[in-house]
């Protein structure tokens, strides 16, 4: 219960950063997807049911602040979670570098899922050129943000909960500890 409450708070904090703070610091139409990073982290660490439901919620939260059709990011995040969760057993989920690589490629995957859903279900099939043009910069930005979040979470752990491990990332590479 406590963990769910933490995740809810964290999701609100990240979406708040994404829509209210970062657009003031970054150039126009150059926005990271912080909730995607959280969804990927869940894909590596959470159970099927809990992680799936929470990623669906994360997508719906993003839908509240993005785009025209509610539920679009909900499905996209859920599919991304399921894909990562299905492959998680083949990866070394304790490696933080995995999260960075996943973030980069998951941005493209998210773009592909969104384009497919828009073309199949919505009238906004013309959205794909806009999405394609933003994919690469967003993937780079998301990866950079994932790195910053990793460093920040480690800093927090060192200062406030030295003994506690971050689930799934308890044996982080030493290079992020410096």
């Amino acid at each position: 219960m406590k963990r769910i409450a933490y995740f809810l708070l964290l999701s609100f904090f990240l979406i708040f950063l994404q829509v209210s703070v970062l657009p003031r610091l970054l150039p126009d139409y150059f926005k990271p997807d912080l909730l995607l990073i959280l969804a990927l982290y869940l894909g590596l660490t959470a159970t099927w049911l809990r992680g799936g439901l929470f990623c669906w919620y994360l997508g719906c939260l993003e839908d509240t602040f993005a785009g025209n059709d509610f539920g679009l990011f909900g499905i996209a995040f859920l599919i991304i979670f399921l894909a990562v969760r299905a492959g998680a057993s083949r990866f070394n989920t304790e490696s933080s570098a995995l999260l960075l690589v996943l973030t980069f490629f998951a941005t493209f995957f998210k773009g592909a899922v969104l384009i497919s859903l828009l073309v199949l279900f919505s009238e906004a099939g013309r959205q794909w050129p806009v999405i394609l043009s933003c994919l690469l910069p967003e993937a780079v930005l998301n990866t950079f943000c994932a790195l910053l979040l990793l460093r920040f979470s480690l800093l927090l752990r060192r200062r406030f909960a030295r003994g506690a491990g971050i689930p799934g990332l308890s044996h982080l590479d030493r290079r992020y500890e410096s």
Partner: peptide
């Protein structure tokens, strides 16, 4: 205008 769209793919404002 309070906020912009959460993503760089859509054009909405709050």
């Amino acid at each position: 205008v309070v906020t912009e769209d959460a993503t760089s793919w859509f054009r909405t404002v709050m």
